[in-house]
Write a protein that binds this DNA or RNA. Structure first.
Lengths: 145, 145
DNA sequence: TCGGGTCGCTTGCAAAATGATAGTTACTTC
DNA sequence: GAAGTAACTATCATTTTGCAAGCGACCCGA
């Protein structure tokens, strides 16, 4: 494998990573979810170079994870909003966050709390069929055809 | 944010991405899980340049996700095995795969089947406390101190 | 109306990462 | 001893990233 747009492989992981497989893209999604929807907010929050941010935003828009929205003509002001695909990616970021906390979590870290129960959220990937955490049951990998 | 090893931020997502935040690293983990544990197997499966593969393997080993194991002295033969941290990352790859299938899934893709039930695995990220999928309940982000 | 100041970028250039290709070491097998 | 395989390293071109400066559109205060 090691595919491009024209030569797609059969691995869904690869397909996902084609669209978001870099650090900045994921951090941009995270920040947009936090409410940092404007260019300058993202730039200062991430400490990213402006040209790089521009490119990441275009790539994410092209990949369909965010959409650029001009909410003021005069003065010209834009915001970047998550699309459905972008929102659907957020749980993955939560899972990465849980992993990061576990294996690289020295010092104090931010966290999510369930607004209703008040408990700290503990993201886990499960199989929706069984409810069992992935890794707790043996799986078989199948190839198409 | 935009942190390095010495200047850690408070975001667990960033902490996770510091360790694995690139495409090749994730694909290497995926292939090792598939049983492609040797250098040549990884290289041909991924179609990656040998110098790049070497660097990724060192980085993953340094980050504690894989361990290099010499299983034969004569002839010298090595394999790369997942550590606990590496295995713990696999569910995230499954979640990325599910997302990739949904949003970039044209054509036939490989999939996992539960060995016991025979059903196709459907990975979802849930809150272990409530069992509810992340995104289905309102959350509050909290910062330390 | 003139001089800052902010926002949302682009441009130019340097530095770092990635990738293609060739070569190396250590061994086995014919 | 010739050829082959596994696991790399070395060299160099290409690509991507990143820094710093600048630019157009506008707003705001004097």
């Amino acid at each position: 494998m090691g595919m491009d747009e024209n030569n797609l492989g059969t691995c869904p992981v690869d397909r996902g990573l084609m669209r978001v497989g870099d650090r900045w893209s994921m951090l941009v999604l995270r920040d947009i979810e936090r409410g940092l929807t404007r260019y300058e907010q993202l730039r200062t929050s991430l400490g990213i170079a402006p040209n790089i941010l521009s490119r990441r935003l275009s790539a994410l828009a092209e990949a369909g994870l965010i959409a650029k929205n001009r909410y003021s003509e005069r003065p010209p002001r834009d915001e970047y909003l998550l699309t459905e695909a972008g929102r659907d990616f957020l749980p993955i970021l939560m899972a990465i966050g849980a992993w990061g906390r576990k294996y690289n979590g020295v010092g104090a870290l931010s966290r999510h709390r369930d607004a209703a129960t008040g408990e700290i959220v503990r993201p886990v990937v499960v199989d929706a069929n069984t409810g069992a955490p992935i890794g707790s049951r043996p799986l078989r990998l199948e190839y198409p055809d």
